[in-house]
């Protein structure tokens, strides 16, 4: 692990990212907006209810809203951070030199991925104290927060892995960026649309039952999976409707891990030319 974290690309990229004020300004404004949102929500809810109390149900609502905001943050920022990781080196004419060093392709890709998502991880971790405000009012357990952060980490890793893969395969950052955002939109909006379509068609055809295809669309949609993590009871309902008892988060983890492993494998194998291929 120590060796992995002593990765030269990772160290260099992190050094460069935190050398300019942009990162710190971004972090400052993120925490400021989060803080205003949380305190504003608590104040507004207490004053609207007229009781002066902030109840556990409202605390849970705040927690759910924050969870979706952070998921949105991950989905929209990760492509921007990762889609230029390799292609920008190619555009800046620094890639050839990097590829002639003794670093393995895995080391370079791993360094690129981790350094790209490190900033987002920092945003998430630095927001934890604000996130933890909900504990003061009850309604949410620490294990639930831990599970949701693991979910974020997996989603971050997969979108990041896809960004790095497209960045390795395409020559230009703009193309890589478009394809990565396209994939992200597919995984969220398109799968959501297909889920609604599939549920509607199944209901019309079978009355009460829902086709297993709906389960598939639900299981790869981050927003739906987050819902099942916030409301675990929803998993049972999905199981009853589709006849598949496997919780959505299990399928999500398997599917996304496969995408992650596939994208990293492809990035590593395509980063350098295969000198022995012609034999």
């Amino acid at each position: 692990m120590k060796e992995l974290l002593a990765n030269p690309v990772l160290v260099k990229e992190i050094k460069l990212r935190f050398r300019n004020m942009k990162s710190f300004t971004g972090l400052f404004f993120y925490l400021l907006i989060m803080g205003i949102f949380v305190f504003g929500f608590i104040n507004l809810t207490s004053s609207i209810s007229g009781s002066g109390f902030f109840r556990p149900e409202e605390s849970f609502m705040l927690f759910s809203m924050l969870s979706y905001i952070q998921l949105g943050l991950i989905l929209f920022i990760t492509p921007g951070l990762t889609a230029g990781s390799v292609s920008s080196e190619r555009e800046k004419q620094t890639l050839n030199i990097l590829l002639t060093t003794a670093q393995s392709s895995f080391q370079i890709i791993f360094g690129k991925l981790l350094s790209s998502i490190a900033f987002l991880l920092l945003l998430l971790v630095s927001g934890l104290p604000i996130y933890s405000m909900v504990f003061l009012y009850g309604g949410v357990s620490p294990s639930q927060i831990a599970i949701i952060f693991l979910f974020y980490f997996l989603t971050l890793l997969v979108i990041g892995g896809l960004g790095v893969m497209y960045s390795t395969l395409t020559r230009r950052t703009i193309v890589s960026m478009i394809v990565t955002y396209g994939t992200m939109i597919f995984l969220t909006a398109v799968t959501g649309f297909f889920l609604i379509l599939s549920v509607s068609l199944s209901s019309a055809a079978m009355g009460t039952g829902v086709s297993p295809l709906s389960y598939f669309w639900a299981s790869i949609n981050p927003a739906v999976v987050l819902l099942t993590l916030l409301e675990p009871g929803f998993n049972d309902e999905v199981g009853q409707m589709t006849g598949i008892p496997l919780p959505l988060w299990v399928s999500y983890t398997i599917f996304y891990m496969l995408i992650f492993v596939g994208s990293i494998w492809l990035s590593v194998s395509k980063l350098r030319v295969n000198m022995n291929k012609y034999r």
């Binding site: 260099k12 050094k15 460069l16 300019n20 800046k92 620094t94 050839n96 030199i97 060093t101 003794a102």
Partner: peptide, 30 residues
């Protein structure tokens, strides 16, 4: 790659990296 030192005809450098850090990065890469 360990045997050669390669200097391409066209190359770029990283922004906001100091001269000794530049060499330090490549040293670590080897």
């Amino acid at each position: 790659r360990k045997q050669i030192g390669y200097m391409p005809d066209f190359f770029g450098v990283y922004d906001q990296l100091k001269t000794d850090e530049y060499l330090d990065f490549y040293g670590a890469s080897y």
